[in-house]
Every structure is written in structure tokens, then in C-alpha cells.
């Protein structure tokens, strides 16, 4: 039953729930580090979503072999190639975000948003 559910819409549903949780986390979390982690969760959700599109029943890994010649026997390699790029991009974004958090931590000794607002005043942040 669970296989049938996942094959229909289930996997889309699960990835979109993951996306929603990430987005909600960015909005409600008070800690900047948690916000960054939620951002990563969002990106991973979209990567899963894209990879779902490349799935093919009965397909094997996309490395050409002499014995298998039909295109229908290999899974779709294009989403995998695209998501390599997306993973590297999310890596770069996370790195820059962590560097920014290091600066904020050194200045205030905390990453909690309400404590920083208390120090700096509302409109500065």
C-alpha cells in the first residue's frame, strides 16, 4: 500500500511538506543558526523534488553498458546533472551564511534574534 501511495502523489506530497516545514522554520525560529538550517532543509526539499522527475520504472544507473542499448532502460540523467549544480550552489550559500554568523557571534556573543534586538534597538536590525 505504501508503495502505491509513494508512486502516485505521495513522494511529491512528502517533499512539499518538507519544503513547507523549512519555510515555516525560517519564519518562526528565533535563532539565526536554526534559520540557516531551515534554509538548507528547503533547498534539500527542492532537490528531492527535482530528482523525483528523473525516476523511471525498471531503469538502471545512467552509465552506458554494452548489453543494454534501449534508452528506456536507463533512468533520466538530466535531473541528476542539474542537481549537482544546485547542491554546489547551496554549499556556497551555506558557507557565506556561516561566515556572516561568525561575525554576528563575535560582535554580540549570541545568535538569538530577540537578544540582539534588545542590544541594538528595533530599527537597526
Amino acid at each position: 500500500m505504501i508503495n502505491a501511495f509513494l508512486a502516485q502523489d505521495g513522494i511529491y506530497l512528502l517533499t512539499v511538506i518538507l519544503l513547507g516545514l523549512g519555510l515555516a522554520g525560517i519564519i518562526v525560529c528565533n535563532n539565526y543558526m536554526k534559520k540557516l538550517i531551515c534554509m538548507n532543509i528547503m533547498q534539500v526539499a527542492v532537490i528531492f523534488f527535482f530528482l523525483c522527475l528523473g525516476q523511471k520504472n525498471g531503469g538502471t544507473i545512467p552509465v552506458a553498458m554494452d548489453t543494454i542499448i534501449h534508452a528506456a532502460d536507463y533512468i533520466n540523467p538530466l535531473p541528476h546533472g542539474l542537481m549537482l549544480t544546485a547542491i554546489v550552489v547551496s554549499l556556497g550559500t551555506t558557507g557565506v551564511g556561516l561566515a556572516l554568523l561568525t561575525r554576528i557571534w563575535e560582535r554580540f556573543g549570541t545568535l538569538e534574534e530577540d537578544e540582539i534586538i534588545q542590544v541594538k534597538g528595533e530599527d537597526e536590525v
Partner: peptide, 14 residues
């Protein structure tokens, strides 16, 4: 229900 079915060899992306 606009997205292709998972694993369908005849869907548009495949």
C-alpha cells in the same frame, strides 16, 4: 494533479 506519475517512462521529462 498536474505533475507526471513517478517512474512513468513516457512522461515528458523522461
Amino acid at each position: 494533479r498536474v505533475l507526471p506519475e513517478i517512474g512513468d517512462p513516457n512522461s515528458a521529462p523522461n
